[in-house]
Design a protein around this nucleic acid. Structure first.
Lengths: 349, 349
DNA sequence: TTAATTTACGCAATCGATTCCGTTAACTAT
DNA sequence: ATAGTTAACGGAATCGATTGCGTAAATTAA
């Protein structure tokens, strides 16, 4: 297996009797090179199979045109769509995307942070791991002026770009919707409360109950570790076996919500008549389960696109940009069968 | 916003009164440097906040410790798991992962190929776009001795590493399963026939029919463009409206299979009694739909891990490795409710 | 026609890490 | 004690692209 040698701008220079400087400038459409020469050089480059070496250019310019992504897990519908949005936006701008997953481990997050830093990324997009509390591992990016965009699972105590949805309002709307459907005793499947998203959703839930004069019952609020299918099953079973079971569930994600629907059906409890259910995320399973799951749409791909755009804009601007800019995206409630106790959606005031 | 200067091995050299050569060697545990010095230098590096510059090292060594991934779309369960497997394996070996999606466009695949090449990736993992026929854009990797691993959607006419499942056998087993359940007229939702995976699945389907003495009816074989939910719906409706409708469907993916189940239910056709359905992939929706979807499990994450390992092994070996090595992974039939016409699974001979 | 610009390019340093050759000092064998 | 060996390190080129500064030729202005 013979390995062809790399064609560099020096080869082009020798071949065309120009200096490497001119070759470089021509390839970058520098204004001081005549149109004729640019055309000539570009055609020769194409023909000789020249391909730029990003490592060399990156070293010289101290940037890699690469966006780093640090998330918990790739194989979750929300995360996959988020990355997809990032990738599309980045690529259109000629940037690459480096991905790394923490598997929700603090330690992995730190180590991935370092590795991404070592690649001299243009910017970092992060959705925090479940475990993360300390934020020191992000400091080196700040020190070097490398923008960080926290997305979805964001820190409370770190000044940086943030792209989130309005979890509070979404949680409030979901709960209110159940109330409007006639639910009197609404349970909540809550996620880890040190993560903003789950904390805010719960807050919305609580406020909706309060403002509609419903009592808050602690035994109707289940705190999950991972909001998994199995956890959802257990919790639902327990709730439905209560002497006074809930007539509605607002779950902080779709996985647990779907498990609730399936568990209820198995136990002979009618959804939505006896138990109305609403989830969060609008995962593909939401529209497949029967009855189909009402939920909150999470604009994952859009969040990814916006996050990438933040990085690109930041690095395009030399002037001081406001690092603390927070983008809050709206969500929409997707009403399907699982919550339609009354058969209709009431118009909210 | 003050930007801290980068700490380089030259800074360390000056600070510790060593030469940059020694610093570099120490950080790489070179044997010609004493243990004492290595410890000293590493501690100082840590303390001074030194972080290696991958761009510089990559330029010098002409490699980036980065694996490039080129797939159609990230936000599909199979692809997300594939990437997840790649990422985990790569990271354990200290490699980064660059991703790019073609959105099933030939043009994007070419352009992404170039971009990944420009980053001097260690190796490339590809699942072909739907459109791709020509393979010229991969030649430059071959010329440079950069290994390519084709995974799942692989080319027929290109000598390289390949990681696939046994689509033929899987298609055969799925069909045979339906036959054993008593189906006499089995329809097939086929994907684009220029892609190995769909072609092989169809072959398996055809052979299973033949070997069990069932006739092959062209009007029961539907060729899909994208195997989407909508396409599945239309196809199912059309099939079930036939004067002599099928009593089973083997779909080349789960999305279309699920749409078939839901469509049949809507039309008052009982699944599996009147229509047995089996899909392909074991997506999350397969276990959620009711009746739950029998399907073929696709070891996505494992395929990703193996693909990454191929690249890592190849680049670790200086001796000539066999580029044409093909890894064929087994699949398993996952029998759920949608195909259990008889209520039991027959033991295959 | 001559000075003042403008155009179109070349020279050489630079980015940070690596590595091929040394070189010096300490150590070992005889 | 001396040659030979080893351990521990330094010098300087190198990877490929970029760019500030400089310059010769061409063009324009006066």
């Amino acid at each position: 297996m013979k390995i062809k040698k790399e064609v560099t701008i020096y080869d082009l220079a020798k071949e065309l009797n120009y200096s490497p400087s001119t070759i470089s400038r021509a390839l970058n459409n520098h204004k001081s090179i005549s149109k004729k020469t640019i055309k000539l050089i570009k055609e020769a480059a194409e023909e000789m199979g020249y391909r730029p070496n990003n490592l060399a250019a990156g070293l010289r310019n101290n940037k890699s045109n690469t966006i780093g992504v640090l998330i918990s897990r790739i194989n979750r519908p929300f995360m996959a769509s988020l990355i997809s949005g990032i990738e599309e936006t980045a690529r259109k701008a000629g940037h690459n995307v480096l991905i790394s997953q923490s598997n929700d481990k603090y330690e992995n997050e730190i180590s991935n942070c370092n590795t991404l830093y070592d690649s001299r990324i243009t910017g970092l997009i992060v959705s925090l791991s479940m475990e993360t509390v300390e934020m020191d591992h992000f400091q080196k990016f700040v020190d070097k002026g490398i923008p960080i965009v926290f997305v979805d699972r964001v820190p409370d105590n770190f000044n940086s770009y943030k792209v989130v949805i309005d979890n509070y309002t979404a949680g409030y709307s979901a709960t209110k919707h159940l109330i409007e459907q006639g639910c009197k005793r609404i349970a909540h499947f809550a996620g880890a409360q040190h993560r903003n998203v789950y904390r805010e959703r719960k807050k919305g839930y609580l406020d909706a109950l309060r403002e509609h004069g419903l009592p808050i019952e602690d035994n109707l609020i289940v705190h999950f570790k991972t909001l998994s299918f199995e956890e959802g099953n257990k919790a639902t079973k327990k709730l439905l076996k209560m002497s006074n079971p809930p007539d509605g569930i607002f779950s902080a994600n779709d996985t647990a919500a779907v498990s609730a629907i399936m568990c209820a059906k198995k136990m002979g409890v009618n959804v939505p008549e006896q138990l109305a259910v609403i989830g969060f995320n609008d995962d593909p399973i939401a529209s497949i389960v029967q009855p189909s799951l009402s939920t909150i749409s999470h604009p994952a791909s859009k969040m990814g696109a916006i996050s990438a755009k933040r990085i690109l804009d930041h690095s395009a601007n030399t002037y001081d940009t406001d690092l603390s800019e927070i983008t809050v995206l709206g969500t929409e409630i997707v009403v399907r069968e699982s919550s339609l106790k009354r058969g209709v959606v009431l118009e909210s005031e």
